[in-house]
Design a protein around this nucleic acid. Sequence first.
DNA 1: AAAGTAACCAACCGCCTCTGT
DNA 2: CACAGAGGCGGTTGGTTACTT
Length: 316
Amino acid sequence: MGRPPCCDTVGVKKGPWTPEEDIILVSYIQEQGAGNWRSVPSNTGLLRCSKSCRLRWTNYLRPGIKRGNFTEHEEKMIIHLQELLGNRWAAIASYLPHRTDNDIKNYWNTHLKKKLHKQKGQEDLSTHDHSSTISKGQWEKRLQTDIHMAKQALCEALCIEKSDPKTPPDSEIYSVTSQCKTVPSSTYASSAENIARLLENWTKKSPNSCQAGVNESNHSASLNNHHLSMGSSSSPSEGTICTRLLSFNSSNYSDISQSEEDAKFDAANFTPQTHEQETQMPFTMLEKWLFDDAAPHGQEGDFMDLALEETTVHLF
DNA sequence: AAAGTAACCAACCGCCTCTGT
DNA sequence: CACAGAGGCGGTTGGTTACTT
C-alpha cells in the first residue's frame, strides 16, 4: 500500500482558488511567514491541503512573480538551461528570478518544445550545420556571463550584509518571513498586485459573485470596494485581513513602481534563487553543481576557461 | 453563429529528498 | 541507524479560452 495522502481528502476543496482564499493565504503568510505548510489549512480555516497552499503561494501569490510574455532572452535562457540541466525546472527557475518552475515548465511544454522541434526539422534540411555550433558557443558565453553577473550580485549582497547588518540581503527582501514587519512593504504589495489582478478577472467573469460595493465603472475603486465589502463579511478575521490588504494596496503599493521592483530583481539577475525560503545557496556550490552536470558533455572546460568578454555583454 | 479543435495554464498527483526524533 | 513526516519537484490532467471551419 502506498503512503496515505498528505492530508484528508474529506472536506478538502479542490480546483481554482478564489480571491478570498488568496487573501486569507497571503495574509496568513504575511503574518506567519512561508513554511510549516502543514499548519496553514488548520490555522487559516482554508479547506485546502497544505500542498495546495504551498503551490498556490509559490506559483501565483509569491511576490515578484512575472507571468506570461516570456522575452526572447528568457526563452533562450530556458532552452539552454534545459539542454544543460534537463527537465529540472526548479533549477532552471532559480536562474530566472521572476519565473516559477511551473510557469517555465508550461512554457517549455507548450511553446519551446514545438519551436525547437520545428527548428530542428529545418536544421536537418539545412547543410549549414556549423551555424548551430556557433550559436551554442554563444550560449555558453552568455551563460558564463550570467554566472559572472550572478557572482557579482551575490558579492554585492554579501558586502552590503556585512557592512550593514540591519540591511537585509536581496533574498530577504522578497521573502515574507515571520519578521515581515521589518521587511519593506513592497514585499507584500506584489502579492496584493497578484490578487488585484486576479480580482480584476474575477469581477469581470462573475459580476454577481462580488457585487456588494463593487463599482464596475472604476476598476481600482472596485477592487478597494471589493476588499471593503469582504471586510464587512461574516468572518471577523476576514475583515481585519481585508482591511490590512486594503491598506497595503492603497498606501504602500502605490509608492512602489514596478520598475523599482524590477530594478531590485535586476540587481540579482541570474542569481540562482530558491522559491520557498528564498535562501540562497552559496553561488559557488550551484555553479559547481551546474558545471558538474555539464561536465560529461565536455562543456566544463569551455565554461571555466571562458573569460567574460565585453562582446558578450551586448547579447543581453 | 455554432461546432469542433487546438492551445494554454492552474492545479493535482505521487514519488523523492530532506530533516528531526 | 531507522523511521516518519513535511516539503519539494516533475509529470500529468482537466477546465477554459482562442482559433478555425
